[in-house]
Design a binder for these strands. Structure first.
Lengths: 336, 336
DNA sequence: TTGTACGCGTTATCAT
DNA sequence: ATGATAACGCGTACAA
């Protein structure tokens, strides 16, 4: 029973075209404006966005696809996107690709069929060739956190290399030479970059890389635990360890607790993300903190621009800086 | 340039009505079915959901409104809802009420104007009179985690009272008598129930309630920290403390770490939620674990039923059981 | 069972 | 600036 634009036109005694023009901010005479406004109020008229979409081919919906919704990093980005897009009238639909490439593809097709105006995608791996195929050339997509190999488009990522470089450099400066690295799956962009940062700083400081000190997890808590355990079992333990993401940091620190390894007396640790946690763990963990809200904000900004029709220029790749937070989990080996 | 139902009809040499009937699962002759199917394939035809929505008045969209998206509890529920609704073709739009009643109301109106078919709402407080007003009688809404005072509708909540009862009972059985309670804001349903559980078990065991042992936080980390600190400063410290939600548990444990208070030697602790954390904190924290996935699942089920037109019966209030996980943060005072 | 034609609520075009 | 009217793509009476 909701009032339509026709009802408003009838009550205001003007043409529907006039009402439509008023609603869309075009000029109408003051007299008509008043008539329309009172009719709108009297009927409690609300534009039907579905009918509008049918004409305009815009759904005013943006889709966000992430490998997992119940993930602190994803959530923060989604929250930031939602907050920014809210003011433009966009609604945000969320999709969980459940760490699966097939599911990611299915979700891309799903959001296309739902006529999303734009997509924010955190790809689950390096493969990106399916994106353009599933989405078509019309729907703008912004990658967050990770780039993909075979598809270049707008993206917002952080400077993983230098973030890790800086963190490991701090360890080196404090006298550490045997520094373990719990790396992520090398099929994922951030994992590769973070490992690259580790390698680069060792090289720059003339420290020989020891393959036994580099262990690979899959970015999940359990593998952080396992790889930390393997690190501890080595004949010549590292004096410090850097862990490549939040979940594995959780696992690694849990392992140290279980094994009764004292931080930083027995082992220095640098983790990733989640400020709260670093205060909770005893002692306060040194971490690399990613600007999550900013990632979402920048992605939303780019997307809005593209959705407004600005297809100009090459893809925008925004590189945000992460900051390294030195706390109490690093032992200074120089002053024993 | 997307193919329409007319194009399919033309290519298949049947009437649009026939194509429409085929698409919606009605009977068509085998011959026509084949013709249509090949035309659909040839043209890569996809139903335009917007045009369909205009006719059917169904957007196939469900909105989820929570006080904060960047919250582990909220996101677990959203993930669960999305997963369940996915198979029915619904998309999930998320809204952040940012802990504000005005914003909550605005979001309710927003999703109504977006023609959401159903709403899952985690209310930010006890007030619920605005819900029906903003949403109207047509759109079904399911409350999660919290009930509201002045509006009764379908809801999925947990049995907070007995969950806390059970946890505190464990403390009592282990010999604790001075048990602190860091309660939540009494304007929130769960906070009241959890406090009620605490009170009830004390009463049942004949332990006098000491008002000084009940401190109120606002469900945020920082107040968990502050109230734990106040508890520690009391002349006669409690021997155990129960904290009413996840964020405050984080704060409380951080405080204990900062103050060098040993768990459970100096103080026994029971927290809320987040299994991961309990392994991380040394020692493993005893916690009350909420069945988050199940909350989302049950909410989605009810909503689907309502959206399918089943308005029958009184509102369904599903009460799920939380489980208490006893770990190493409780000292047994009976065997000193 | 199938075809025709209309309506859903809006925007856009074209005279006026 | 305004009014009348044709789309947008689909579902669905109605008639055949």
């Amino acid at each position: 029973m909701a009032a339509t634009i026709k009802d408003v036109a009838r009550l205001a005694e003007v043409a529907v075209g006039t009402v439509s023009r008023y609603l869309n901010g075009y000029k109408v005479t003051a007299a008509n404006r008043l008539r329309i406004e009172s009719a709108v109020k009297a009927l409690d008229f609300k534009i039907n966005p579905i009918a509008r979409s049918l004409k305009t081919n815009k759904s005013m919906t943006v889709a966000v696809i992430v490998p997992a919704l119940a993930n602190i990093f994803s959530m923060n980005i989604i929250e930031s996107i939602e907050r920014h897009l809210d003011q433009f009238g966009y609604s945000v639909m969320v999709c969980d690709s459940q760490y699966g490439l097939a599911k990611e593809r299915a979700k891309l097709e799903f959001v296309k069929e739902k006529y999303a105006d734009g997509v924010v995608l955190m790809p689950m791996c390096d493969r990106g060739s399916h994106i353009a195929g599933a989405l078509g050339p019309e729907i703008p997509v912004v990658l967050v956190d990770r780039l993909v190999d075979d598809f270049v488009t707008d993206a917002v990522v952080i400077d993983n290399i230098n973030a890790v470089y800086q963190a490991v450099e701090e360890l080196i400066v404090r006298g550490h030479r045997r520094i373990g690295m719990i790396a992520g799956p090398q099929g994922i962009f951030t994992a590769r970059e973070r490992l690259e940062g580790y390698r680069r700083v060792l090289k720059d400081y003339g420290i020989a890389e020891d393959a036994r000190l580099i262990l690979y997890g899959d970015y999940l808590t359990v593998t952080g635990y396992q790889q930390m355990q393997r690190l501890l079992l080595q004949e010549r333990r590292p004096t410090a360890v850097i862990v490549s993401n939040y979940e594995m940091t959780l696992g690694a620190v849990t392992c140290l607790n279980d094994q009764g390894v004292a931080i930083p007396e027995d082992l220095s640790v640098v983790g990733f993300d989640q400020l709260e946690l670093s205060g909770l763990v005893k002692p306060a963990l040194s971490v690399i903190v990613q600007p999550k809200e900013e990632i979402g904000l920048e992605a939303a900004k780019i997307l809005v621009r593209r959705m407004n029709g600005d297809k100009s220029g090459p893809p925008t790749i925004v590189r945000l800086k992460a900051r390294f937070l030195r706390r109490d989990s690093i032992r200074d080996l120089n002053t024993p």
